[in-house]
């Protein structure tokens, strides 16, 4: 049976933090990384609002790699451009390429105090598996 909505939950890593994503499709799995990343950074779910939209395009070797590359794209947009993404609309997805739009807002230290300062999204243990009709992926962040 397919899950109707995507979800995420965080898990522990000795010095860092990981997230497990569950979703019915590859598109929604990739999209779920976006609110998960925002929640990791701010320590609060749903605090980042979708006030503006910016295009995004990333390439990877496969779906697992796309997750890592997308995560590092979110980090760069935040650290270098001050943009916090709340959600992702996927427009095109192939095995190795994602095109879409990130919706989010400018980083505001008052509204978005940083709880967990992620510095990178790692390749460690990354993988996607089918489980009970859903896709499940694990991604570990370097803090």
């Amino acid at each position: 049976m397919l899950a109707s909505v995507a979800s995420h939950r965080f898990f522990e890593h000795t010095g860092d933090f990981g997230v497990e994503l569950t979703a019915p499709t590859e598109e929604s799995l990739l999209a779920e990384l976006v609110p998960a990343f925002a929640a990791l950074l701010t320590g609060v779910e749903g605090v980042v609002e979708a006030r503006e939209s910016v295009p995004v395009e990333v390439e990877g070797i496969d779906l697992s790699d796309l997750l890592v590359v997308l995560g590092n794209e979110l980090l760069y947009r935040f650290e270098a451009e001050g943009f916090l993404a709340a959600e992702l609309a996927v427009e095109e997805l192939t095995e190795t390429r994602l095109v879409g739009a990130l919706r989010g807002e400018r980083y505001d230290p008052e509204r978005h105090p940083i709880a967990r300062p992620a510095k990178a999204v790692t390749q460690h243990g990354v993988g996607v598996e089918a489980r009970d009709g859903e896709l499940v992926a694990r991604v570990i962040f370097d803090l």
């Binding site: 010095g15 790692t122 570990i140």
Partner: peptide, 9 residues
């Protein structure tokens, strides 16, 4: 030593 990514710390 503790858990890292790829290599242990």
């Amino acid at each position: 030593v503790h858990w890292g990514y790829g290599f242990p710390i």
